[in-house]
Nucleic acid binder design. Structure first.
Lengths: 217, 217
DNA sequence: TAAAATATTTAGATGCATCTAATTTTAAAC
DNA sequence: GTTTAAAATTAGATGCATCTAAATATTTTA
């Protein structure tokens, strides 16, 4: 069907498209894919020939409907494998990404539908991100960044924005985990840092942290 | 570490080496890999440069110790994934091969050791083939081809040689499965076909069948 | 053992994904 | 609104795995 590289580009465009107002720029894609702008141009042309993206020279790139569908299927696979690794193989949430990056490219409809069933149709991956269903539909959670809460507000931790190993290990160390209740006790005007309560614990966290934690109020 | 193609060549050489008395020939490898002899020569040179095989022009190719180890690790992964697919994801034994061909190339030590644990350290795959351990050691079963049994002899079905979907479906249809007891009731001198008893059932089978079933007496 | 047949290797080309260096287009600054 | 800076594209090259066609070894056959 599609090559490894093509699938990775589609995924990258999908992720960048969410945050961008206009089309995804060549440079942004090059940064995301850890490659050169000229390589991006080449690949984007190929994806355009296959009608996976809409591309006009110098105007950035957009996913087509079929490109979006394909990207969502890859993301579905990635997140299902992450659930498998954590729930069945005792991986920690900071260890799953790399391996899932490989597993997501295995081509078998049956494999994924059976895996989904085996995991009992999970709705979210270990980082709180929604898992698209076979049709590509998924719940868009109404979530807020912790940094946007005011003093006195309380919510549940439903996801993380930064999924780097370093950040996740920091969270583990401080017993900050999905599903826990967080209350904002104080907020420092100067640097935006917060004093928060997580269940029984109190903790001061910087904006590096509060900007990467999603809360549902 | 090694490319997809390199890994597949190592595996192919390993399988052909078992049956061959001398080195594996270029043509045999080309046949196994579904490619041209010239492509084989190129790849074999590359593997030789990496000390994975021993190769002298026109003399065939042998796995080196490190090549053998690598091949066994790939086979280990392939067979563990097959067990997973059958036992956890409800695949049938004729459906697993293709998917396992892809899964076997995922690169993660932890993934495989955890999978092994999750499956409770299986010793054989769904076709009865032994699963090498992390060191590459595996049990060599004392098994005989069904075609080598004489009238009156009884044994247990411990493996299949042909793992094609067609053959496995034929076995399923006739309720011939791993672990079942088989008795040779009669053998036709003319064409080698046999009348066998499998548990309660009686069945006449051709040499196409008896040459592809392994029995432990 | 010389000729014929078969097997294997070499030489040169292709497609894919990538790169560097040079060019062109667009956006920003003055 | 030119000029300058930044972004994007093109042209041409590289490495990998493969191919075809031609050349060379080896094995078989007469």
């Amino acid at each position: 069907m599609f090559s490894l590289s093509e699938e990775n580009y589609l995924k990258a465009i999908f992720h960048l498209q969410k945050h961008a107002k206009a089309g995804v720029s060549t440079n942004a894609l090059a940064e995301e894919m850890q490659t050169k702008a000229s390589s991006v141009t080449d690949m984007v042309k190929k994806l355009s020939d296959k009608n996976l993206v809409i591309y006009k020279k110098y105007q950035g790139v957009y996913l087509s409907e079929s490109g979006r569908k394909t990207a969502l299927q890859i993301i579905r696979k990635h997140r299902l494998w992450e659930v498998f690794l954590v729930e069945k193989l005792d991986f920690t949430w900071d260890e799953v990404h790399e391996v899932a990056e490989e597993l997501e490219h295995i081509k078998s409809e049956k494999l994924i539908s059976e895996l989904d069933k085996f995991l009992d149709y999970p709705k979210r991956d270990p980082h709180g991100d929604p898992i698209p269903d076979a049709e590509g539909d998924f719940q868009v959670a109404n979530k807020t960044l912790l940094s946007d809460l005011s003093i006195g507000e309380t919510g549940t931790l439903v996801g993380v924005k930064d999924t780097s190993s370093e950040f996740l290990k920091y969270l583990d160390k401080n017993k900050i985990a999905l599903g826990k209740t967080i209350e904002v006790l104080d907020k420092e005007e100067f640097d935006g840092s917060m004093l928060i309560r997580i269940e029984e614990d109190r903790l001061r966290v910087s904006t590096m942290v509060t900007n990467n934690i999603y809360i549902k109020i």
